[in-house]
Design a protein around this nucleic acid. Structure first.
Lengths: 177, 177
DNA sequence: TTTTCTATGTTATAGCATAACCCGTCAAGA
DNA sequence: TCTTGACGGGTTATGCTATAACATAGAAAA
């Protein structure tokens, strides 16, 4: 278990200090809270958070990092769900559609959303050394993008903003390169 | 040929009016100019724009849209180059590394860079109906992203900003949906 | 209850990307 | 001149990512 060893108090991955995005912490209770929020979000949308879907979200939350679809699939299969790719892809698609997870294209991977329910345009910060992924609020960025696009007559519906670089923990290690 | 039918004057895809990003135009001479610029860029970097690499760039320029690696490969093979995936991927990787082309992850595709040599952080506007891709300057966005990341102790090295939506030509068609 | 729609599972296949190896070319140094 | 090493480009083979198409079961609506 990656995350249980860190005793650092978790003030909530979900909705408080973004500076904790890269901090190691025990987030089991944030995960709990996020699951509850997910139920509410799905309910509000008239969608059903079925067992596979719920378990898929749990898997993403437990991993606390971005997982490939096939990694998710393996864990679903181990839990007695179907073991063919569409099982994972469908569940993940559902989560992404309802804003409960995000797809990180640079990694061909998926990560649980840390702010479900809120309207948000996230930017992802991906550490190229340790693979950690943080979800940073990008409202202003998104607004700027929309404005820029509007100037060209383009209407933005969805946007991916993904940055590759070094996280706080790795930025030191890499400097000796 | 997609682009030769449009008689609209091309004031230069490369370096002038971004409003032409989505305009159909005969860009054969911009392509010529971009190839020259590419030679200069490669030369300045001490890299060699070999026949395969040059031809790959030409292919992207001729297509005037994003091409999958296998599409590029087919055309390379037709021109007598190797016909195995690594041939295309290596050439494309070279072009991307030297800022002569961009990888558009949302499409698993590659497109020629319209502003080679300039330091630029492009944002891509992808039309979900016609598939057109425009490269919009995103300097301010990138600056904002860097600042946001810095606040979290993250150092951005590369960023992808990709927007999915409707281009000027398609925004009308879609309104009746 | 019957119908209908949604969800889950399957098989099969398509599409994207890279590892590992071989060989030829070219330039620098022995 | 010969050798050596870096680089480029070609190959075979394989792995990873994603979706199409179809079958079945269960929930919701009529």
């Amino acid at each position: 278990m990656r995350e249980t060893s860190a005793a650092k108090a978790c003030t909530g991955c979900a909705d408080t200090d973004p500076a904790l995005a890269f901090a190691q912490h025990d987030h089991s209770h944030c995960a709990q809270a996020l699951l509850l929020r997910a139920e509410a979000v799905a309910d509000a949308a008239g969608a059903r958070l079925t067992p596979v879907r719920r378990r898929t979200l749990e898997i993403l939350l437990e991993a606390h990092r971005a997982l490939g679809a096939y990694e998710v699939l393996d864990r679903l299969a181990a839990d007695g769900f179907g073991k063919q790719p569409p099982v994972a892809y469908r569940a993940l698609e559902f989560l992404v559609e309802h804003g409960l997870a995000h797809r990180i294209r640079r990694l061909n991977a998926f990560a649980a959303c840390m702010h479900p329910g809120e309207v948000h345009a996230p930017a992802f910060l991906i550490c190229r050394l340790c693979g950690a992924v943080a979800e940073a609020p990008a409202g202003p960025l998104r607004a700027a993008l929309d404005a820029k696009a509007a100037g060209l007559g383009f209407v933005v519906e969805r946007a991916n903003i993904e940055a590759l670089g070094l996280c706080p923990a790795c930025v030191g290690k890499a400097s000796c390169t």
